[in-house]
Design a protein around this nucleic acid. Structure first.
Lengths: 244, 244
DNA sequence: AGACATTTAAATGTCTGACAAATGAAAATT
DNA sequence: AATTTTCATTTGTCAGACATTTAAATGTCT
C-alpha cells in the first residue's frame, strides 16, 4: 500500500485511493481494522491531519466507519443497501440536475428500466407492495394535495412497483432512476384533470399486478410514460418560450 | 446554512451535510464559489482542519472541486458522466461483494436491465457501437485469452450494447449493474466449450442489432442469461460443496 | 501604448503539537 | 464475586505556523 511521491495531486486523495484499492480488491475485508491514524501517518510519511482527510473521504463513500476509544479506530464498513441507495440517489439526482438532461431522455431511461421490472413484479408482487401502491393511490386522490406531495407519493408508488420484483439489486439500481426524476417532475403543475388521468393509470397498474398480468401492467406503464412525456414537454416548451 | 449544536455526530459530517443540502436544493449552483476555509471555519465556529475534513468529504463525492491560488477556493462541481460512472460502479461493486448477493439475483437484475435497452438499441445502434461489439467478439475468440481478460472483454461488449440505446442516462444507470457483475463473473472458469457458446450468442446479438431486429436481440440475450446462470450455478455449487 | 518581468495578496496544502472525549480492558476496591 | 476506579489507546477538535500555488496588480522596458 504505497503512494506515488511524484504525483501532484493531494496527498489525502492519493492515500484514500490507495486504501480504496485495498478494499475493492478484497485485501481489506469487511470489519477489518485499519491501522490507527498515527500509524497510517507514519506509514505514508505524512501528518495526522492529512491521514484524517483521507479517511473522511472514505467515510463519505461509506467505505469505512470510525469509532473512538481504546479499541476503536477505522473499520472497513459493510456497505448496506440504505447507504448504497443514498449514494446512488445523490449521484443520480445531481447528474440529472447539473447536465441539462432533457426531460425526454430522463423519462425514457426511467420507464425503460421500470418496464424491465414488470414481468418479475407481476409474478412476485406481495400483499405488502400492493398495499403500499393502493395507499399511495388513495393519497393521490386527496384534493388538497400539493404538487410536491403528489410527486413524492408518485415516487413511493413507483418504488413499490419496483420492489414488487423482489430483487434487491434491481431495487437499488432503479432507486436512482426513479428518485432522480423527482426534481424534474416537481416542475410540473398537476391539474385536477392530469391527476385523474395518472390516478387511473396507477389503478390499472395495481390491478394488473394483483392479477399477475404482466402484459396489462406493461401496457398501462407504457401509457403512463406517454402521458408523463406529454406533460413534461408542455412544461419545458412553456419554459423555453420567451416572456414565460 | 447551520449545524445543530446538540448533534453528537462529527462536526465535519454535519458541515458537509449542510453544504450538500445547499447544493442539492439548488441554492448553491454549479461553479459557485464557496467561502474560503477560514470564512467557513468562522461561520460554523470550528477550526480550519474541521472545515477541511468536511470539504474533503464533499470532494470524495465529486460535489466540489478545489483550486489553489489567489482566486482559488472550493467550487460547486458540475458532476460529469465519468465521475458519476465511477461513483456508481464503486458503490455497486462493493454492495454486491459485501452482502452475499447470490449469483442468481445479481444475474437476474443485470439481464432484466439489459433487456430494457434492447428495443432502443436495435433501433438506434450506430456503426461505432457495432464496431466495438465486433472487435470484442474477435478478441474473445483468441485462444490465449485469460479468464480475466475474457470477462473484461465481456463487460466492454455489454457496455457497447447498452450504449447502443443512445441514452446517456440509461448508460449511466446500467454501468453499475454491468460492471458490478464482473467480480462474480471472474470466479467462473471459461472452458473452450463455454467460450464458444458465449461467442456464438454475442455474434447473434450483434447480428440482430445490425439488422435492427429487436426481438431476435431479446431472444439471444435471454439465451445468454440462461447460459450465464447455468455457468454461475455450477461454480457456486462447487464452491458450496465441502472439500472443494 | 504595449509587451514582458516582478511583486504581492489570497487561498489551499501540509505540518507540529496539544488537549478533550470516549471507550473498553485491567487493576483496585468493596 | 461484583463493583468501581484507573488507565492506556484512539478518534475528535483546536491553534498556529509555514509552504506552495495562482492570478491579479504593479513596475519596467521597448
Amino acid at each position: 500500500m504505497k503512494i506515488d511521491p511524484d504525483d501532484k495531486t493531494d496527498l489525502s486523495a492519493q492515500i484514500a485511493g490507495a486504501i480504496r484499492e485495498e478494499i475493492m480488491a478484497g485485501r481489506l475485508i469487511v470489519d477489518a481494522r485499519l491501522p490507527s491514524e498515527a500509524e497510517l501517518a507514519d506509514h505514508f510519511a505524512v501528518s495526522r491531519p492529512t491521514v484524517r482527510e483521507a479517511l473522511k473521504r472514505l467515510a463519505a463513500q461509506s467505505l469505512i466507519r470510525t469509532a473512538r476509544g481504546a479499541f476503536g479506530g477505522a473499520f472497513v464498513n459493510r456497505l448496506s443497501y440504505p447507504e448504497a441507495y443514498g449514494q446512488h440517489i445523490t449521484t443520480s439526482t445531481l447528474l440529472l440536475s447539473m447536465n441539462r438532461v432533457s426531460f425526454d431522455v430522463a423519462c425514457e431511461a426511467r420507464y425503460a428500466l421500470e418496464r424491465a421490472c414488470t414481468p418479475l413484479a407481476a409474478e412476485r408482487r406481495t400483499p405488502d407492495t400492493l398495499a403500499t401502491m393502493r395507499a399511495e393511490i388513495h393519497r393521490q386522490a386527496q384534493p388538497g394535495l400539493t404538487d410536491e406531495a403528489f410527486c413524492a407519493s408518485d415516487v413511493t408508488f413507483h418504488r413499490a412497483l419496483v420492489d414488487s420484483a423482489g430483487n434487491p439489486v434491481l431495487s437499488y439500481q432503479l432507486a436512482g432512476a426513479v428518485e432522480a426524476m423527482q426534481p424534474l417532475m416537481n416542475m410540473i403543475t398537476f391539474t385536477a384533470r392530469s391527476r385523474e388521468a395518472i390516478l387511473g393509470l396507477h389503478t390499472r397498474i395495481a390491478d394488473a399486478l394483483e392479477r399477475h398480468e404482466a402484459e396489462a401492467t406493461q401496457a398501462a406503464l407504457g401509457e403512463l410514460e406517454s402521458y408523463t412525456l406529454t406533460l413534461g414537454r408542455d412544461v419545458m416548451a412553456a419554459r423555453a418560450r420567451p416572456k414565460g
